[in-house]
Measured scan of single mutants.
Amino acid sequence: MAAGGDHGSPDSYRSPLASRYASPEMCFVFSDRYKFRTWRQLWLWLAEAEQTLGLPITDEQIQEMKSNLENIDFKMAAEEEKRLRHDVMAHVHTFGHCCPKAAGIIHLGATSCYVGDNTDLIILRNALDLLLPKLARVISRLADFAKERASLPTLGFTHFQPAQLTTVGKRCCLWIQDLCMDLQNLKRVRDDLRFRGVKGTTGTQASFLQLFEGDDHKVEQLDKMVTEKAGFKRAFIITGQTYTRKVDIEVLSVLASLGASVHKICTDIRLLANLKEMEEPFEKQQIGSSAMPYKRNPMRSERCCSLARHLMTLVMDPLQTASVQWFERTLDDSANRRICLAEAFLTADTILNTLQNISEGLVVYPKVIERRIRQELPFMATENIIMAMVKAGGSRQDCHEKIRVLSQQAASVVKQEGGDNDLIERIQVDAYFSPIHSQLDHLLDPSSFTGRASQQVQRFLEEEVYPLLKPYESVMKVKAELCL
């Protein structure tokens, strides 16, 4: 049975990233139509530049190519590739079939990587351009969430054990800070992308030097003109047959890092959902379990974690691919890159769409948070109580021993009897502590235990987050809708 299948058929496997999760716009960027249309555009740009620099290419040939950029006979191309065992030459023939007058000058002087690699770089750039505003929107939604809850005390956790208090907004800023680093890295790697350009079979530009009869300047002009037509500021000066596969490492490393950030955020949300302090959106008709109707599973956060793990592992592909590119190139890269580049971007696209949807509907339960604080705060307040007693004339050592005994009794009630923490009640009825009984409410005010959390939130948002989001103001209103 021949390899390949009808990918629109229910009898043929289709990647869930495309069929179930990723956005239509990201799927289109990695589609065959987008790819092969870009090949034709690159052939047109090459012909236009070659004509401008004096090669015998007519206006009629150029116009014929322009008129057929979208006229792609995919069936013919597939048949040609089956016959020739070469995808680029299959599309040269297919393009030439609908451009008979231009057929002889299509791909003039070029090698397969002229269309293959340059198209990949265009796709990487455009895919990054799709991700950047999506990530900015996630940051914006979380920034709104953090600002609104900047002063809401909550129990902090280290080692997932109760620690000092923080605020809900401050905790959210930990998430935002990681995503801001990801946004900066995505922008950097996007701006650092260079075009492969017009380089020939081993990167020496020998074929173009021959076409222009040894004119170095025209060869350099050709490279520059096509690079500018493709919208790049610069091209690699040095290439082998391909652009260095280190570029793929750079791009997928940034995406993998984004995956790590999203995994951490969504894990926190899942843990908070278990504590009943916070939940992701839950639709009115949504079913959490087929057997347990009360369940409210954090399905979206779980999906993000599941896909983020996949995204983090994909960076190993370009690392290994770059390491086995012998001399000017081997074909070890080809099949692998067809999979890992598309999957990385479709996965990143999915987790950003999902995280935006989550961040637009996060639900906080202040009463649950308050109750958990009441359970733990008495123990945390013991040092403040000791200091207040010393100020009232008591002995630190005597007070410490009193607190120690009462704390152990209260802990026994919590752990052995399943009761509430009654340390404060014990202190309130103990005559030894009568000098500070009137101060206990103040000493137990949760806001006095959150330090500068709310001020940190305000400063972080104003100095770091809002300036970073400013270039994306025009796209901030787009909502994230999930079908599944």
Rank of each mutant, 00 (worst) to 15 (best):
A2T: 14
A2N: 15
A2S: 15
P10F: 13
Y21N: 04
A22I: 11
M26N: 02
M26G: 01
C27Q: 10
F28K: 09
V29L: 10
V29I: 11
F30M: 12
D32G: 12
D32H: 15
R37S: 09
W43P: 00
Q51P: 00
P56G: 09
P56Y: 10
I57G: 04
T58P: 06
Q63M: 13
N71F: 10
D73S: 10
D73L: 06
K75P: 12
M76G: 13
A78V: 10
K82N: 12
R83A: 11
D87A: 02
H93Q: 13
H93V: 14
H93F: 10
T94M: 14
T94C: 11
H97P: 04
C98H: 10
K101C: 09
T111M: 03
S112D: 00
S112T: 01
Y114D: 05
Y114E: 06
G116D: 15
G116N: 13
D117F: 02
T119G: 11
L128N: 15
D129S: 09
L130N: 09
R137Y: 08
I139A: 08
S140K: 14
R141A: 15
D144R: 15
F145S: 10
E148T: 09
A150L: 05
S151C: 09
P153H: 01
T154Y: 04
G156K: 00
T158E: 00
F160A: 05
Q164P: 03
L165Q: 03
K170C: 03
R171M: 00
R171V: 00
C173T: 09
L174C: 15
I176K: 01
K187N: 09
V189M: 14
V198E: 01
K199I: 00
G203W: 00
G203N: 01
S207F: 05
E213Q: 13
G214N: 13
D215M: 11
E220S: 14
Q221K: 12
M225V: 08
E228N: 08
A230Q: 02
T239Y: 01
T242K: 01
Y243G: 12
V251S: 08
L252F: 08
L252H: 09
S253F: 13
S253N: 11
A256Q: 03
S257E: 08
G259W: 00
S261I: 04
T267R: 01
D268I: 00
R270G: 02
R270A: 01
N274T: 14
E277F: 04
S289C: 00
K295W: 03
R296Q: 10
E302L: 00
E302W: 01
R303D: 00
A308T: 12
M312A: 06
M312I: 11
T313R: 04
V315N: 06
L319E: 01
A322R: 03
S323R: 03
Q325S: 13
R329M: 01
L331P: 00
A335C: 13
N336V: 12
R337H: 04
R338S: 02
I339V: 13
I339M: 10
F345E: 01
T350A: 14
L355P: 00
Q356Y: 11
S359C: 08
E360I: 06
L362I: 10
V364T: 05
Y365T: 07
P366V: 05
K367F: 03
E370M: 14
L377E: 01
P378V: 09
E383Y: 04
I386T: 13
G393S: 06
G393F: 06
R396E: 02
D398A: 12
D398V: 13
E401G: 12
E401S: 11
I403L: 05
V405Q: 08
L406N: 06
Q408A: 14
Q409V: 09
A410T: 04
K415E: 06
G419F: 06
D422V: 11
I424N: 08
S434N: 10
P435C: 07
H437F: 06
D445W: 10
S448Y: 13
G451D: 03
Q456R: 03
R459L: 10
F460A: 03
L461M: 11
E462I: 10
E463A: 10
V465K: 02
L468R: 07
K470F: 12
P471G: 14
P471E: 15
Y472L: 14
S474C: 15
V475E: 14
V475Y: 15
K477M: 15
V478P: 15
L482C: 15
C483I: 13
C483R: 14
